[in-house]
Design a protein around this nucleic acid. Structure first.
Length: 475
RNA sequence: GCCGCCUUCGUCUAGUCUGGCCCAGGACGCCAGGUUCUCAUCCUGGUAACACCGGUUCAAAUCCGGUAGGCGGUACCA
């Protein structure tokens, strides 16, 4: 019996959830669901300076909108400071960490010197200047201090990443990382390791930017005598300029895609494919298929540029294939005053056939409900046809329509009636149907004429057709 | 600067471990054609890539070495 899978998504509340974070969350969630494991949301709010009001709420509502339900949390690191303090002290006691008293200003000075000397920037020399006893006394007296990790000067630290393979770093390259800040809060490195262990996290799935600091974390696990989790670093999502996707690349906020008319199914499908693929040619996945086919071993290493074109294509595909009532729910915010129209789902059914984003919606359905249509009368005349012919065709069709019963206004019945009428009167589809469609929609491009008529109903159709006839006559 | 990672069509990618089936496959986009009352959908076809140099081999996108480029990290940020 394998150990139960526990994963966590651990964002810091420093702003809105971005698309990169969303993908990290998605991968964690998929792994949890696939393995019937637990998905924890942990808020890494140990930096009080950078905390942004409302960020946690934004993260939670984004996860919710994208259907990534959390099993545990949110758990706030800021409420667990005693735990980190306890473990930091334990590390000092075991000789794996030490107290340090340098001010940030002093450190900056040292950093500058090392930069000029072209050597790795490290502060491990600080551990030499002071004995444990003296340090402990100064701490006891309440002097401001930090706790630093004592990394050995020789040897290497290595680990096997599920995605990147074996990573080894010489300990000499690793700095004596600060674990506990002088304000009593832990840094990411300590809090992360302590919490992952404390919460029984089995798989750490996080962005590749963490790869360079993972050896520190591995060393921490060793220092504590804990078994490290499986690490799986996922490649970064890039902007068009190939740098890490961020606000300056435009709409990178996860919930912004909702405002831009995308449906969550499309966005999650799309970002799942950024850096992962099922090794066959499948492109469109249901949530269930995504769960069963997702595999950490199939994630690749290179960063992936986020290109909106393919997202739009996918979104259009979902708009067409999702159940209409689901689409209606997503569409509501974009429907404006049309939202309560009795025929709205019929109109939506036609509109979704030619949409990529829900933002196109008001414009795509307005002609169904406008009292008067605004268009150039010339539009009624098909290419290479005359005004007279068009007028004749429309009047002829209107005559047929007047005798056509309102209770038979369905696409099939209308189509049959019109086609019969065209055949009997030696008209052509182009000559009869184009003006008819323009008459009822006022558009050069629109859904099919029979579909539109079935939604509009007898009264409005005939009124619009006779309006068109009047227009033609006055041309 | 130092350390690490990465490198196949414009973009997302398959193929690389286990060299030959790859003069490199799929998808988006774009172009052309078909269907058609228009648009969209749909269908058909086309466009376009193994970063570079050298080595190993009968044979290299695949193995080895180097170069270049990109990205990430280098905080009392996460």
């Amino acid at each position: 019996m394998a150990e139960k899978v526990v994963v966590r998504f651990a964002p810091s509340p420093t702003g809105t959830l971005h698309i990169g974070g969303l993908r990290t969350a998605l991968f964690n969630w998929l792994w949890a669901r696939k393995n019937h494991g637990t998905f924890i949301l942990r808020i890494e709010d140990t930096d009080r300076e950078r905390f942004v009001e409302g960020a946690v709420e934004n993260i939670i509502s984004a996860l919710e909108w994208y259907g990534l339900d959390i099993d545990q949390g949110p758990i706030y690191q800021s409420e667990r400071t005693e735990l980190y303090r306890k473990y930091a002290d334990q590390l000092v006691a075991s000789g794996h960490a030490y107290y340090s008293f340098e001010t940030p200003e002093k450190l900056e000075e040292l950093r500058t010197i090392q930069r000029l000397q072209h050597v790795p920037i490290k502060f491990d020399a600080l551990r030499e200047g002071i004995t444990n006893e003296v340090a402990a006394q100064r701490v006891a007296k309440g002097e401001r201090h930090v706790v630093r990790l004592r990394i050995p000067r020789d040897g290497t630290t290595s680990f096997t990443d599920q995605i990147y393979g074996q990573i080894s770093v010489d300990n000499a390259e690793i700095d004596d990382q600060i674990l506990l800040k002088s304000d009593g809060f832990p840094t990411y490195h300590l809090a992360n390791v302590v919490d992952d262990h404390d919460m029984g996290v089995t798989h750490v799935i996080r962005a590749a930017e963490w790869l360079p600091s993972t050896p520190k974390h591995v060393y921490l696990y060793q220092a504590f005598g804990w078994r490290p989790p499986v690490f799986a670093h996922v490649p970064l999502i890039l902007g068009p300029d190939k740098s890490k996707l961020s606000k300056r690349h435009g709409a990178a906020a996860a919930l912004e895609y909702r405002n831009q008319g995308f449906v969550p199914e499309a966005v999650t499908n799309f970002i799942a494919l950024l850096g992962w693929n099922p090794k066959d040619d499948t492109e469109v996945f249901s949530r269930q298929e995504l769960i069963s086919r997702f595999d950490l071993n199939k994630i690749n290493k290179a960063g992936a540029v986020f290109n909106i074109e393919k997202l739009e294509w996918l979104n259009g595909s979902y708009l067409r294939s999702l159940p209409i009532d689901v689409v209606y729910e997503y569409a509501k915010p974009f429907l404006g005053t049309y939202v309560d129209q009795p025929t709205i789902t019929d109109a939506l059914e036609l509109a979704r056939e030619r949409m990529r984003r829900l933002t196109e919606l008001p414009d795509a359905i307005s002609f169904f409900y406008d009292e008067t249509l605004v268009y150039e009368s010339e539009l009624l005349i098909p290419k290479k046809e005359t005004r007279e012919q068009t007028l004749y065709a429309l009047e002829s069709v209107l005559g047929m329509l007047s005798d056509f019963p309102a209770d038979r206004y369905s696409v099939d019945e209308l189509k049959k009636a019109c086609e019969d009428h065209i055949a009997r009167n030696e008209l052509t589809n182009k000559l009869a149907l184009w003006p008819l469609r323009v008459a009822v929609t006022g558009r050069a491009a629109s859904p099919g004429v029979f579909e539109v008529m079935a939604v509009l109903g007898k009264g409005r159709v005939e009124q619009r057709v006779s309006d068109a006839i009047t227009r033609l006559k006055s041309l």
